[in-house]
Design a protein around this nucleic acid. Structure first.
Lengths: 354, 354
DNA sequence: CAGCGATGTGGGAGCGCTCCCATTCCCTGG
DNA sequence: CCAGGGAATGGGAGCGCTCCCACATCGCTG
């Protein structure tokens, strides 16, 4: 009698209870149930308890679609990974990033919509999704120097936070790791190991991350009072093969080098191959340092000294920043500078290669 | 005049055009627009064109929430990765899987909802999400032998497809790689290389994938007419350290072994370390074969012979299967046996370790 | 030429919420 | 003792779609 008749209001397709039914069972109105569900303070203790009981008894879970429609918010956030540029980073990078984002979103009870866009059509389709108001905000990973997407999204009024930046003066909110510091730390370490002819294998010059690490390398040399030598600078494309080729070029140009700072572990792995070919021992003849501290570094022979980035933490931080922007509502502009650290510190992990 | 007045029907929060407005501009009814949008054949060519023009002019994109609410389907699919068991697989595994799933979903214009569940509370929360009808179906990765989740979901009436199975007689739809074949191929290769005392480092016995690979190893020996020797079988936990310990145990028990089939690349890496400690050369003294063909295999010294799984293809196949189940509607039962291959072939990649 | 099914169409009736206004009730101060 | 103002509440009015029924309209058949 307590419920029964009021329950089967209509021949519902699926048997899930609705807010209305919870209200009936709790003996209150729809509004009150909604308030309880959404944690409004304007509810009596008594009503709150009655509703809680009814929710438990019916196993009520609010219908997300209805919420989104009525409230024009989705409680979902998109993480966009342009797959074309995925190999830029050593392999586990994205999984770590996803892990951080996912954990932080789960905590806030938001959904993660993962979007790998590899082709232009997929990209267009993705913009359609955004237009269909499927997400409250967007996280952008691995943004290239001239990518127009971030600005386009921002202009749409959609909150956006990027992982990494496109240039020094990035107008859009971002979270990055201290790439300059990474280069400096690597060089300082090598200098401390008594190396003097320190080369570097940099990434493509059109990527900020590559320029920053190269800048750190130069700064490190300057701090150690070492005269820079451009023949010690080679460029790779963040792939293993690129690292191998760059290393060969370096050995040819500057056979006297005694250390190499590679801007990624994967390039370091390539470089290691080239060194082996050339009969140079690591670390005896040439010390080697990479960036990322990925599996690759641990598995190399000898294990690679590498500068670790707090990837998962970047994911978490990005997500916090985005959620804050979403909560602040539209027109709030970029988040205040101080609120969150935008550039996270890196850390040198010393192994046997240096 | 053509539109104008009929447009600003209400002081809408956000300026996106609605189906109603498209209908007005096209000079047809709401129903017709809906039919055109959803590709119904019951529309005259003339109406279809008028609607198409109006859609283009207004830049109309259907509101997903409204669609989901009215149509009780979400056009989204969840991929669940239990993070606790993530290390079971070599690192790039999940990214490859995600890649395959994502590509296939994008093609079908569905959204990917990625859910990493690592803790019990997160898991419960996830079940809540499902109850909130946020997805049309679920893809489950890395399912453990006694995981009740698949059955629970299936009982909820939610279409489910798993990656891998829990046992030989898996009642729920799955896509797996030919783990038995992987073991057989590895052993056949080693036999072909003239090895006779072939050991194996298996995974935990409560995981089907481990049992299957071990079964393949045994079958391979039988096919080669080699008498099995249980002292040549050790068990690891799919980690590097586990591989190392297992290898040490094997060397102790069966010093005369001349080859090892490790059930994962990562365990092979651990085994390689133990072999080095023991002064055994690879491949001269002991030939080594792994499974996964991951980065790890390529970077080992010497590069590791490994059995490749078509991970991305598994992701694609799972997704196709799930989409089909969703399209077939509830109560359609498990998909017909023949429609899709459930067990994808593996492939031996020979490198210098054997 | 009436009669019928096939085909195209418009629009009502929801889907299950949130928003917000109106109402009720109770406590305060004058 | 009554006006006035909060606090708690009920419920109407949508949100933008899909579903489906009812209503043309057409070309056939017998």
């Amino acid at each position: 009698m307590r419920e029964g008749s009021s329950r089967g209001v209509s021949g519902r397709r699926n048997g899930r209870p609705t807010l209305e039914e919870v209200a009936a069972l709790a003996g209150v109105g729809r509004g009150t149930v909604s308030r309880v569900i959404n944690g409004s303070p304007r509810v009596s203790e008594q009503a709150r308890e009655a509703v809680a009981r009814a929710v438990a008894e019916l196993g009520y879970v609010p219908n997300q679609a209805a919420r989104a429609l009525a409230g024009s918010r989705t409680d979902a956030v998109a993480l966009v990974i342009p797959e074309t540029e995925a190999r830029v980073f050593s392999e586990p990078y994205f999984l770590d990033l996803i892990r951080g984002v996912s954990a932080e979103l789960a905590q806030a009870d938001k959904q993660l919509l993962l979007t790998l866009v590899r082709t232009e059509p997929e990209r267009r389709r993705f913009e359609q999704y955004l237009a269909a108001q499927r997400v409250d905000g967007v996280l952008l990973a691995s943004v290239h120097g001239d990518d127009p997407l971030p600005d386009r999204l921002a202009r749409l009024g959609l909150p956006v936070v990027m992982n990494g930046r496109r240039s020094e003066a990035e107008p859009i909110d971002y979270v990055d790791s201290d790439n300059t510091g990474a280069g400096r730390a690597a060089v300082a370490h090598l200098v401390g190991r008594g190396r003097a002819r320190i080369a570097t294998i940099s990434g493509p010059a059109d990527m900020y991350v590559a320029r920053a690490r190269l800048g750190g390398y130069r700064a490190g040399l300057a701090e150690a009072g070492i005269t820079p030598d451009e023949s010690l600078v080679a460029t790779g494309d963040f792939t293993e093969e690129g690292g191998r080729l760059a290393m060969r070029a370096l050995l040819e140009r500057a056979p006297g080098l005694d250390a190499v700072f590679a801007a990624s572990d994967v390039m370091a792995a390539g470089a290691r191959g080239a060194l082996r070919e050339a009969g140079r021992r690591v670390p005896e003849d040439v010390a080697l340092v990479g960036v990322d501290d990925s599996v690759v570094a641990r598995l190399m022979d000898p294990p690679l000294t590498s500068v670790r980035q707090p990837i998962e933490e970047m994911g978490r931080t990005m997500t916090r920043l985005l959620l804050r922007k979403i909560a602040d509502g539209p027109g709030a502009g970029p988040a205040a500078e101080e609120e969150q650290p935008r550039v996270l510190p890196t850390e040198l992990v010393v192994r046997d290669s240096s």
